[in-house]
């Protein structure tokens, strides 16, 4: 049962991800990406991670993609007049993506012993209480750094928009 669900979800994820890249209309791309995010949330649910699934829906489908759609609609980019990008950029982007994938793979492989120790401890990591304790005890410093990073990005965005206003 779960295997069948996994295959259906994977088909949707990969299919919509490819459609996101290949559709001509940016709005259609964005909508395919939303469906892709939903299917990823489904994968999280299959792994019994309710919290992660719902937060994923709220943040990615609910906030980021709506802002994205909003920008596309506001800029009126739906004319399909996008020119073909030079070959060099495509190659560079592919190489950059492969490097990121490599780093991610290495990082994920390194977490394996830690994850196994969590498995063996037998605690219910689906519960938010346990998740919060782990995040704010063991991973306190990276967690806080992530919030600082977000704050910096926010301030930067405000600063950039302010400067543009003064010029005009």
């Amino acid at each position: 049962m779960i295997e069948v669900l996994f295959y259906i979800l994977s088909t949707i994820t990969l299919g919509t991800a490819l459609l996101t890249i290949f559709s001509r209309n940016p709005i259609h791309s964005a909508i395919y990406l939303v469906i892709c995010f939903f299917s990823i949330a489904g994968h999280y649910l299959l792994l019994n991670a309710q919290f992660l699934a719902i937060v994923h829906v709220i943040v990615y489908s609910g906030a980021i993609m709506i802002l994205m759609l909003f920008t596309i609609m506001l800029m009126n980019l739906n004319k399909e007049h996008e020119k073909h990008k030079p070959k060099l950029i495509i190659i560079a982007a592919t190489i950059a993506f492969c490097l990121v994938a490599l780093v991610l793979l290495a990082a994920l492989l390194k977490t394996k012993p830690v994850v196994e120790s969590y498995y063996n401890s037998g605690t219910d990591f689906q519960s938010i209480k346990v998740l919060g304790q782990v995040l704010l005890n063991e991973y306190m410093v990276p967690f806080e750094f992530a919030s600082v990073l977000l704050l910096v990005a926010m301030i930067g965005a405000v600063l950039i928009s302010k400067k543009e206003k003064q010029k005009a």
């Binding site: 939303v34 719902i54 609910g62 938010i128």
Partner: peptide, 17 residues
Amino acid sequence: IDVAMLFIFGVLSVSVY
């Protein structure tokens, strides 16, 4: 479900679509 409140927020944010 354990995260009912977040579920409501998720649905709310998706309903804009």
